[in-house]
Design a protein around this nucleic acid. Structure first.
Length: 267
DNA sequence: ATGGTTGAGGTTCAA
């Protein structure tokens, strides 16, 4: 079967509902993972999503900040909401689903942005980010016998040189500092994860999923970064058919600063 | 070197 999975940092699900519904109608992913829903659980807009054909929805939200949601046409089970760094943030949720002959554990992550100063001695938010990455090293793609894994989300790190508009100019900018990029590569190596976006589009081609709101003309300047990721256990790599980064979504009405990334599999 | 924009939910913080 064809299986289509999307991930998108939505920066407020309630404000963004019109473009979420447009996106679901036009691209019809089987599962959409959202980050930064910024929505308390009791205010989550279940009804319009159910009406759009997404009857299986799991959420992990809080008031004002963070928040992840996994919105699915397929049944979701065995939901796990893990409190990384034990600070009470809603930054992770994993679910289990079946597609074709595969059972798949799906991790949905929103990694801390880390503030402006890349020094944990003066910036506790950067320390939190590094601690979060350290804890992510425990997440293994082959953790459960007979179950494949996919990990998606806004990881707030652009690990490779061509994941940013200028490697040299961003080396001291949070999201592309060596301590972060090395840390994320170690998460991938230890957990036996495959970087599906880069398997489909190898370096040196530049790929971005985020453009700042602060640019005068985001598209002309094109100072993007690849902060959103789709990883999988290595058994799923041969089943990948396509990756699509929906750059046009950055130009939609009242856009998020991140765009959806879609992976298509033949399972 | 600095400022630029957006969102939530208040009169500022986080991104």
């Amino acid at each position: 079967m064809q299986f289509k999975l999307a991930t998108w940092n939505i920066n407020s699900i309630r404000l963004r509902m019109p473009i979420v519904l447009d996106f679901l109608a036009s691209h019809q992913p089987d599962i959409l993972c959202l980050q930064e829903t910024k929505c308390p659980n009791d205010l989550f807009p279940f009804e319009p999503l159910c009406e759009a054909g997404y009857e299986h929805i799991e959420i992990h939200g809080q008031k004002g900040y963070h928040g992840v949601a996994t919105i699915s046409k397929l049944p979701l089970s065995d939901v796990d909401r893990r409190d990384f760094c034990r600070v009470g943030d809603t930054r992770h949720m994993s679910t289990l689903f079946e597609a074709g002959s595969k059972k798949i554990r799906l991790h949905n992550f929103y990694v801390p942005a880390g503030g402006d100063e890349p020094n944990r001695d003066v910036n506790p938010k950067f320390g939190h980010k590094l601690d979060f990455i350290e804890e992510m090293k425990e997440i293994h793609a082959e953790a459960e016998a007979g179950i494949s894994s996919i990990l998606v989300g806004d990881l707030n790190i652009a690990p490779l040189e061509n994941d940013v508009w200028s490697h040299k100019q961003l080396l001291k900018i949070v999201s592309h500092t060596p301590i972060e990029t090395d840390g994320l590569k170690e998460v991938m190596a230890r957990g036996a994860w495959a970087d599906l976006m880069r398997e489909f589009t190898p370096e040196p081609e530049k790929i971005y999923t985020w453009w700042s709101y602060r640019a005068k003309d985001w598209s002309a300047a094109d100072k993007g970064r690849r902060l959103d990721h789709i990883w999988s256990s290595k058994d799923l790599s041969p089943h990948l058919r396509a990756i699509e980064i929906l750059r046009e979504a950055r130009g939609w009405n009242q856009p998020s600063d991140h765009v959806p990334v879609i992976a298509q599999f033949d399972l």
